[in-house]
Simulated assay, not measured.
Amino acid sequence: MSFLIGEGMTGGYGGADILNGCTIAVDKGEIAVIVGPNGAGKSTAMKAIFGMLNLRQGRVMFDGEDITALSPQERVLKGMGFVPQTHNVFTSMTVEENLEMGAFIRRDDYRQTMEQVYELFPVLKQKRRQPAGQLSGGQRQQVAVGRALMTQPKVLMLDEPTAGVSPIVMDELFDRIIEISRTGIAILMVEQNARQALNIADKGYVLVQGANRYTDTGEALMANPEVRRTFLGG
């Protein structure tokens, strides 16, 4: 069984199901990417795995344990980090204060982790005394990812990490995501830039109407003519 798996997930908001039996999994040190058209349930699948959505059917297993009934807070304590697409930094607080907020569950000395975040994102060290609200979109994303890393997660979940950033910043963020995965952290992300995301993915999931349409390695999905034509713009 995979390190993290949302298995046969069915659920939604109110009476309507957005997810229809979909399964998403990722292993340690892997990058798994969820792609698909707008309204396919990509972000909803992430929220379900993180416990922000009650499932009517299915379960979430993490490191061999059934965590379906746990709250998001309890999942963070187990080792899950989640970076939402928007409103993911405290704009009035400095970069360093944002990172300190990420360490709120820690009872040990977190300064070494903060140094690791600064090594990963050098610009944050330069701007550590600056309010996060004054940063560019790409730099804010780095703060959000850095804050999640401060909890020392075993799984890092990213919802549209490159939304609204320039192609150069997107490439840089993807490079950092690869670096993070090489430390053994499992990465699960939803991404609009499907072609670029599948390029770095060990595993890819194409969702349509809340169900798995294609599941394969990133490389195989990139090479699949049907996937290319329908989801990657030819």
Rank of each mutant, 00 (worst) to 15 (best):
T68S: 13
D63R: 01
M93W: 08
A16M: 13
P37T: 11
E119G: 03
M157C: 07
S43K: 07
Y13N: 12
G102L: 02
P225H: 05
G39I: 08
Y118G: 01
L149E: 08
D159L: 07
F62R: 02
D171I: 00
G39Q: 02
R228I: 04
G146E: 03
R107T: 15
K127M: 14
N212V: 14
P72C: 10
I5M: 10
I178P: 00
L135Y: 11
Y205G: 10
E30Q: 15
P37D: 11
V123D: 13
A40Q: 07
L120F: 02
D175L: 00
E74M: 11
Q141E: 12
Q126K: 14
T10W: 05
M222E: 09
A148L: 01
G133K: 14
K47F: 08
G39T: 02
M114P: 00
Q152Y: 01
L4M: 13
L156D: 08
A40C: 10
T44I: 12
F104E: 06
G146C: 06
V145F: 03
M80E: 10
D216C: 09
E179D: 14
G15W: 08
L221M: 07
L4A: 07
V143P: 07
I5N: 05
G164N: 06
T183L: 10
G15P: 08
I24T: 12
V145P: 02
I31P: 06
A194M: 11
